[in-house]
Nucleic acid binder design. Structure first.
Lengths: 226, 226
DNA sequence: TTAAAATGATAGTAAAACTATTATAAAAAG
DNA sequence: CTTTTTATAATAGTTTTACTATCATTTTAA
């Protein structure tokens, strides 16, 4: 059985919906591979067009510029993670288990089921880590925010915050803790592989250690239940 | 009395030491103002040269490219924060007070004493928040790391981690918690001003609330003393 | 089967990100 | 105090990026 997984993203991100055509879908799938290979800074529409293959002009008919394309990819990523979280905590009773499940889903471990046929999920995960924060760390952030393009990220954080509130209704910083958890899961994964002295799991490079850190941080902040 | 505050930065960051000449110091001080005004992406050596005023070619004789210049600024920032931390925790006895002091220094509150005459410290703080992570979030990270350019950041994190260890010698993730604290202080400040739903202090925009969150997170993770 | 829309092929522009050259001015050395 | 070195100004030029425009052709939809 094939699970059909469709995510509708904010239409202000594109000029033509990439999900509606073969070329559009290739723009998405190939840009994920290319950005994760050469990095966002070195990525250009010209290089992408050569791979697809199509012309630069055609890519520009789908996306205004590469920043909008990046936001599209990252929005897709957050929507996908949120979907996985909803799916996996659905049948769980205790908020504690839900939080552990969330942390497990935020950290990649080579066991991520590939839902989509076209999308290279691991490549997308690397992009989310290395380039995700570049979507909002710009002078455009307020304009972009007005056009609602960060909604998928916010919805994920709000979902996580709601579970924190379930665990401890008294906790005052559920939203901040949620966004901190999400960002930290990415940054520490990056440090583990590239800047080992900034973390405590670079020797073994074991994602399970990262998860242990995140759990201790989150449950510590929320206050351990007795 | 004027406190002379000199920071020597890794010489692989520049072609000619900007700290040795008037034009070099203007490159630093004016680039801080310009980047914080128009953002790192819109910043060019040509625009900078027009302001100083000098020529584009002269700026290129100091820095290979704008990424190296950014790293220089961010290195300066971390070295400065580390200096402030050392200075301010020096006379404190309890690790708890030291941690509170560190958190206080990581969050800007308009009371930061301006040591330097030329450097706009608040502008530099904004650059550190909005662009600091761009220094390492690139495909160049491993090469840059080999040339030691992230040492100031690591030294700050190690200093903070050592205080965490002092507070709780049993704690296993002191380095990760230190880098998480530093990153989180910046990200949550950014969210407070630009993406309010990702935090819990956007209404009052009060840095003291952010500090309260950071303290609860750190002391929660380290385990509260009785 | 005709109109509309999407793509390919091609060309072109403006700005960014540099490199190079030579003249002059300032600083340092002898 | 003159010579040598070094730094800067002024200028020009190159390559790449980041687009925009045009028009013929192919594909899709009415």
């Amino acid at each position: 059985m094939q699970i059909e997984f469709k995510i509708k993203l904010n239409s202000s991100l594109f000029l033509r919906d990439p999900d509606g055509t073969d070329i559009g879908r290739k723009i998405i799938s190939e840009s994920i591979k290319l950005i994760s290979n050469i990095g966002y800074e070195q990525f250009t529409f010209k290089k992408l067009a050569a791979i697809i293959p199509t012309t630069e002009a055609t890519v520009y008919r789908y996306f205004e510029n590469k920043h909008k394309l990046l936001i599209y990819l990252i929005d897709y990523y957050w929507a996908f993670i949120r979907y996985q979280v909803l799916f996996n905590i659905n049948n769980l009773q205790s908020p504690k288990d839900k939080i552990k499940t969330i942390i497990d889903l935020l950290v990649w471990e080579d066991n991520a089921n590939s839902f989509s046929t076209e999308i290279d999920q691991k490549a997308l995960y690397y992009i989310a880590i290395a380039d995700g924060s570049k979507t909002f760390l710009s002078k455009e952030v307020d304009d972009l925010n007005k056009s609602q393009v960060f909604v998928p990220y916010k919805e994920l954080c709000e979902l996580i915050a709601s579970v924190f509130k379930e665990y401890n209704p008294e906790y005052q910083f559920a939203n901040s803790l949620a966004s901190t958890l999400v960002e930290t899961s990415h940054f520490q994964y990056f440090f583990m592989h590239h800047l080992p002295r900034l973390c405590d799991f670079a020797e073994k490079k074991d994602p399970k250690l990262l998860e242990a850190f995140l759990e201790s941080m989150v449950f510590g902040a929320l206050g351990n239940e007795l």
